[in-house]
Amino acid sequence: MFLQQIINGISIGLIYALVSVGYSLIFGVLRMMNMAYASILTVGAHFCLSLVQAKFGFFPAIIVALVLTGLVSVFFDVSMLAPLRKKTGSDSVTVLITAIGFNYILLNLCLVIWGSERKPFQNVFDFGSLQVGSVIFDSSQIVIMATALVILAALTWVIYGSKIGLGMRAVQQNTKAANLAGVNTKVVITFSFFISGITACIAGFLIASYYQLIYPTMGVALGGKAFAAAVLGGIGVLHGSVIGGLIVGILECVAVYFFGGGVRDAVAYIILILVLLLVPSGLFGKSENTKV
């Protein structure tokens, strides 16, 4: 039973990891908490739903959904965040409030457009299950695990191995200096938001497919917990987010084992507050000194 709960924790944790990577990606470039990410994810999943239902082929539909979600994310940056960056006197709180505002807009647009009820979503990855000893793995769990790792690897390569990634890292360290050194910061930031939209759509699609249902508030609790996972792993550090996600997932299931289902939701938030108080830079983050 305890072992089974640990396995469950890993499987839930992977889902958190899938989402928390998205928070880290934007934070890694802009030092910004993208609180609208959970809603972008929800919108992405709903795009998948509607486009697949439009029946012009499954893969074309998913690709269109990916691009559309990427564009929503870029729209968010270009129309709302970019002007704030230009403006003097905008601090992290201003940006955060804008993100929270956009989060509410997207979430409620979803409610208006698609309705609040839970709707079925097809399980694309149902190839049966795999039994290892007494533990059963479901094929969708394996797909999620694989996707999370692939996304992690791809993003790591983009950031550390590609030319645009060099630009991303430069922007992170000093936007003005990067600009002076010839990095087109606008392109780099837009690219980052596009990528973040695409990961959001992939995560949304996988999660909807895993649970076989979709609804506008699917991102609310998930977003909060994944954010806690990102903070735990050191927000901005990609592999930290994955490990943070796993830790939150496992601790949640362990908490259910010891204290019952009611305390489950508290785990992530207790972790969040403790990390903020004790090690604000998280497990894998570098501590930063505020510049004077």
Binding site: D91, A228, V231, G262, D265, A266, Y269, I270, I273, L276
Partner: peptide, 22 residues
């Protein structure tokens, strides 16, 4: 928590709010 910088304080209060609910 008030020694945390702006955005982190917002997050901490959000977490606190959820915690009180649980």
């Amino acid at each position: 928590t008030l020694r945390l910088s702006g955005a982190y304080f917002v997050i901490a209060t959000t977490g606190f709010s959820e915690l009180v609910k649980v």
